[in-house]
Design a protein around this nucleic acid. Structure first.
Lengths: 195, 195
DNA sequence: TGGCTGACAAAGATTGAAATCTGTCAGCTG
DNA sequence: CAGCTGACAGATTTCAATCTTTGTCAGCCA
């Protein structure tokens, strides 16, 4: 028997769960698989996560947290709001597209988890909307943008760019005209935003 | 035997197919059901439609054609382009929402057919984009709008309002804040469009 | 004693044999 | 002879029997 890999922690379980999800996909990954990967019985996994759903939700949360860190740097950065907004939207689109393109199976796995855990996704959405609202508000403060309500405007920007960040549309992100379409939408929105 | 209901025509078959789809849903509706509804053998149906897929595609086309007629009146109407654009987008959203709300099952059936017949849907999309481009172009001609390329701008307007017309989002159309969200996106886009 | 095991019941997924459906066509019928 | 029928082969779907998975818990062991 291999030396017991130290105490069983939630972190180690999450790591193993991600591995198992990568290997088998969301449909075939079982709690027994996770336990086997860790060299313990599946009963032990239930000591740390009450249900399989809770385990998958925790994985989803980790995944989304990693994603939003990339963007907060831009939102909180310096320079003209228009620049930051442009870069933020482009970075969001680029990150999603990269993930969808690099490993489509893993991305499909993630989409499946996201569908299951709409609550967690909603919380993540709130975080991103706050970042957008921060940029808009700073633009308004500088006199660059005209917007009554930064939060409502952030929401409008989010909705209007759905085709370029909603995973539902991932299959369209390979089309050659997608970059032109994205540029056109951005331009229209930024024109609408300027004071 | 009931009197043979006149000659068997494509139109009568389509009518019967819609009935059967309404009754049984897209998963259970069979060619034999359609034939039974018409009082003929299923072989006769194949005399008019080469395959079941072709039959369903013809139904899809009819469905979409009815939908786009409602809108072309607005696009080709008179008055300021901004007004027409606003009304066109609102009418599109209202029509979709009404259909999705009135008979969710029938709407789901339609969505299923639309998924199967992406080619037909793409042709319908082209028609709608042309209507949008017409409005934009007339606005540019009148000096109301500033847009380099009416077709590209039409596409941008379409993409930016996806959340309010893409059936994928139908479940969100019941939320109370959806009208405010729609108004906000419209406003932003129209501001961006004005000369 | 605290953490882990593994047998277990209930829920859910898989499988393959039987039933149904699609698409064809030789021939019937008015 | 034009239009329809119905038997048929192959493809697809259904359904019930079987197997797997989830979640619990009494008891083991370090």
């Amino acid at each position: 028997m291999p030396p017991p890999e130290n105490p069983l922690t939630p972190a180690r379980i999450l790591e193993a769960t991600e591995d198992v999800l990568r290997r088998y996909g969301p449909a075939k990954a079982t709690v027994v698989d996770v336990a086997r990967a860790l060299g313990v019985s599946h009963g032990s996994v239930y000591r740390h996560f009450a249900t399989k759903a809770a385990l998958r939700e925790a994985v989803t949360e980790r995944w989304l947290d990693r994603e939003h860190d990339e963007l907060s740097a831009i939102a909180d950065g310096k320079g003209p709001a228009e620049d930051r907004l442009r870069r933020w939207l482009a970075a969001l689109f680029a990150a999603k597209r990269r993930k969808a393109g690099d490993d489509p199976e893993l991305f499909a796995t993630f989409m499946e988890l996201a569908r299951e855990n709409s609550g967690t996704v909603a919380r993540y959405l709130t975080t991103l909307l706050k970042q957008l609202a921060t940029i808009v508000a700073s633009g308004v403060a500088d006199g660059e943008f005209a917007a009554r309500d930064a939060a409502a405007t952030a929401r409008a920007l989010w909705d209007a760019t759905a085709r370029f960040h909603d995973p539902m549309y991932a299959s369209e992100w390979l089309a050659p005209e997608i970059d032109a379409d994205f540029a056109e939408v951005c331009e229209l929105l930024l024109r609408g935003l300027r004071a």
